[in-house]
Nucleic acid binder design. Sequence first.
DNA 1: CGGTATCCCATTTGATACTG
DNA 2: CAGTATCAAATGGGATACCG
Lengths: 157, 157
Amino acid sequence: MRHVEFPDQTCSIARALEIVGERWTLLVVREAFFGTRRFGDFEAALGIAKNVLSDRLAKLVARGVLGRTSVVGRGNPGDYHLTAKGKDLFPIIIALMQWGDRWGDGEPPVRVVERASGDEIAPMRVTSQEGAALALREVAILPGPGADEAMRRRFGA
Amino acid sequence: MRHVEFPDQTCSIARALEIVGERWTLLVVREAFFGTRRFGDFEAALGIAKNVLSDRLAKLVARGVLGRTSVVGRGNPGDYHLTAKGKDLFPIIIALMQWGDRWGDGEPPVRVVERASGDEIAPMRVTSQEGAALALREVAILPGPGADEAMRRRFGA
DNA sequence: CGGTATCCCATTTGATACTG
DNA sequence: CAGTATCAAATGGGATACCG
């Protein structure tokens, strides 16, 4: 395996996966969304090896997904919490959860509800600016401003 | 590493990641969304080793994310295409792409637009049934019908 | 073209022990 | 409690060669 995760990929998904694509990483992030803040709680909830957890947390902090808060009355470095960048993973976490629920076997282990009403949240959908759901065939892929030559050739001028 | 990817996880995200969480897998799926159908095209677009690509495609087929279509005039097994289960990964792919664009450096390599209008698609959001965007603090996690004892203890009765 | 079979090595993982 | 250090074993990845 090379050191760079996905070499030569000009792709936003590859870029995202270089940050959250490692094994265990998204489960650590999920735990953070569930409110877990302490090393030992991550460890217990995930059943992950300590060194791996340590590595994942450190990387998530280094990459700006998690931050640390010092806690009064505790000498340790402090709790982990989602940064704005981390909280912005919310749609990804929810989309994964919903897909897992729809296509996995068994009932959903957790429900995500609107706090105010108690209603289940809506299924994640790709929509137009006006909010209309878009199927795959209703969208087109075009080269963006950051497209390299290969991309431009591929998706038309 | 154990054989089971994420042992003892009662979690929809873990279930999803057991299918699409392996290295390269989501990039293969992305390619499928971009319209790639043939082994050699995946290979060229991704710069992935043949054996790894072979493995990922086989697993995606085995897990129902991709299907194969026989192509007339070609003796080979046939093209790969997204199944309904695969197409349902659309929100995940788009959410990852948008997050990578927002938080990565550099301009977006590709744009996803509504075919009819040419407008960019909307950012993925977690919403209520009525379509109102929900922030993290506006939702609650509750044990679902498939929750095990630990889950129930954790998220309240 | 579309793979499969082999080989080798870098990485990763998890267990255990240890430390402030 | 919150990690770091060490280590053996498994795995994953890429390269190459081969095949229908």
